[in-house]
Design a protein around this nucleic acid. Structure first.
Ligand code: MN
Ligand code: MN
Ligand code: MN
Ligand code: MN
Lengths: 219, 219
DNA sequence: ATTAAAATTTAGACAAATCTAAAAAATACT
DNA sequence: AGTATTTTTTAGATTTGTCTAAATTTTAAT
């Protein structure tokens, strides 16, 4: 299914609701519902007709095509699942979920998540006042040999970087220890451990200086 | 704090990251990072300067003002909290959260919420194939006297309507029974019960035909 | 059947965000 | 210093979504 703009989605969703029962929707009714002007509605109807989302003959009103109805149901599904989430998980009142403001939502989400200190990449999350703690993290390239540490942050988050990390199985929270440093190309040999408990060690392997410089650890 | 467009927010967030350490950010660096053209960057810089979000003299590079930094931190907070939510609750891998597509997200959300059948207003939620069940709901205005039923849907969801419902304490899931119907104005006298168990009855009260017509119940 | 009113569409304009191509300024290089 | 290169800005278009005002079509009323 193609991708539609917020504006197009609004029109589609609203037509779906208005045409319930009635077989066509009028320009004025739609303009009224969307708090916009009839001329704007006509403009958009031409666009949606061109995209085959609705049937429309000038002066004759319009109704969604089957394709348009499919899109509408997808939009409605999204909308209602989010409303359910807001009410059920974030504890908004059922009559508030329509008009939740971004700031309010984020604060409730923060509360719901238990005020996490850092995101999945290890990046610190600012609190509601904008304060962001940066704990003492050191670059993996500068970690001393044989000093166990924990991967806590990955700076470069390009696809290429993340692909490499996944392949090497380096994840946030993993325990890591440098076994050797090579002067020639500044590559380092490291060993990962499953968890803090001394479970089965993995074999050691080497990573480039470039990769190491993008990984931060805490002791 | 004012409201900014998605585009403005992208610029602000990216400048924040780029200026870490450096004291100014260059036009080309920003264009590169945003995959846009230098000319577009200059255009936006004029706009953000006008809004006092950054310091900028032509040809001299730019940096966020204190106000701009505040906005950036707010954006970063939102972004990272959502990433945390995606990873922790919706179980996306930590290296997937950057590029989650809408469809995927919604399906995971659906799963996480336990495939709810209807939203907080009682509106049915279509499944991932677009199927939407409409259970036999009857209009409260047409419910027989002394026949207990459950409020399952509210059609008109205007602020005015929701305000009235809240005042009358009529909520989705509430048990309701019509005690009398008045022919004169078609108003009805109803009584609510706390739950399905026969707990303490509330006193009965009357509602207008107009309100009743917007409420649907199931038996 | 005319005329009046209402609904709808067209014409033309505007703001936001982007682009290409050309001009201007800053830097780098003999 | 004088020229070449790079960086940045301006000028002018384009796309999307909106608007007002005027024209057109449909519907309602005499
Ligand atoms: Mn809603
Ligand atoms: Mn992140
Ligand atoms: Mn991200
Ligand atoms: Mn709803």
């Amino acid at each position: 299914m193609l991708n539609f703009s917020t504006s197009e989605e609004n029109y589609i969703k609203t037509i779906f609701h208005l045409q319930n029962g009635q077989n066509t929707v009028t320009t004025n009714a739609l303009a009224e519902k969307l708090s916009t002007r009839p001329a704007s509605v006509t403009d958009m109807m031409k666009k949606l007709k061109a995209k085959k989302l609705l049937h429309y003959q000038p002066y004759q009103g319009f109704r969604l095509s089957n394709e348009g109805k499919k899109v509408a149901l997808d939009i409605i599904r999204r909308h209602r699942l989010w409303e359910y989430f807001l009410a059920e998980k974030l504890k908004f009142k059922w009559d508030e979920v329509h008009v939740v403001a971004e700031d309010q939502l984020i604060d409730k989400l923060d509360e719901y998540l238990g005020y996490p200190k850092s995101d999945p990449h290890g990046d610190p999350i600012p609190d509601s006042l904008g304060k962001m703690e940066n704990s003492e993290q050191i670059n993996l390239a500068e970690l001393a040999v044989n000093k166990p540490a924990e991967v806590c942050r990955v700076v470069n988050q390009s696809d290429e970087m993340l692909e490499l990390l996944q392949h090497k199985k380096i994840t946030i929270g993993a325990r890591v220890e440098i076994k050797r440093k090579f002067e020639f190309d500044h590559s380092i040999e490291i060993r990962l451990r499953q968890s803090k408990r001394n479970s089965s060690d993995q074999p050691s392997f080497s990573i480039s200086e470039q990769l190491a410089k993008n990984i931060f650890v805490s002791l």
